[in-house]
Design a protein around this nucleic acid. Structure first.
Lengths: 128, 128
DNA sequence: TTCGTTGCAAACATTTTGCAGTTTC
DNA sequence: GAAACTGCAAAATGTTTGCAACGAA
């Protein structure tokens, strides 16, 4: 019994916004970005659609930074750098993504589905 | 102006509890574990002390799983396995921890302080 | 006696949800 | 017209904080 998906202008805009940024934004950020274009947009709709995208695999959650979940439309696993001071999240492309396959595809009898690699530190700006 | 630390039986118990488990517990879990021993323990105290330990480097946060922060008294960075179904967090000891040093010690002009490696999947029990 | 620590409850912040009205098909 | 989608506000959840009482030095 899957429910039929219907088109929605706002849903499309939410996905498009997420796809057009490299900032790995929070729901709030997407909301703020779209609010001027859709004055009647509500934060609940952003959450609802993000969670919908996640279930469909269109979006992943990179990490929870300072209490906020951060999303990425780039679902192919790849490492990130997180600045623990300002909360910035950046892609690291340089690293071979063979690391996830690093010999671990099952662990203690469980299945490994993907591997998250998060480098933590201070970004350039926060170093002063 | 650092404040003089005073001994506290509850604080000691919180750290001891965290050190004596491999479950990478949440604040709530520690609270539940200690409540029978300290009937007047309050959840706020657990949070206050955990945050204190974190600032002192006695404790790290492994990840946020299902909205709850998960702590570890083993502060030496090491990879973890997270079951996305039941939320179990397990140590992976088998992996060489030279991986964190994997050529990334600065990134885009920022300093990398440590690297978090999280394998996600379904644990043995959740596979059915 | 001083000042760090705690319980308690209120405050907070983020995310989820129920419902009535709206939009898509 | 039926069913999905949304705004709104309330609720739920996890965490933090203010304050008066308590406990360690």
């Amino acid at each position: 019994m899957k429910s039929a998906r219907k088109y929605s202008r706002k849903r499309e805009a939410i996905l498009k916004t997420l796809r057009s940024t490299k900032s790995h934004p929070s729901a709030e950020w997407i909301y703020a970005k779209l609010k001027p274009l859709f004055p009647d947009l509500s934060l609940g709709t952003v959450y609802r659609n993000l969670s919908l995208f996640r279930n469909e695999g269109l979006v992943t959650s990179v990490a929870t930074v300072k209490g906020q979940e951060r999303f990425d439309a780039q679902v192919h696993p790849h490492p990130h750098f997180i600045c623990d001071l300002c909360g910035k999240v950046m892609d690291i492309d340089a690293l071979p993504d063979s690391i996830p396959a690093l010999g671990v595809d099952d662990f203690a009898g469980g299945d490994v589905e993907y591997c998250e690699i998060l480098f933590h530190g201070k970004c350039k700006d926060c170093k002063q």
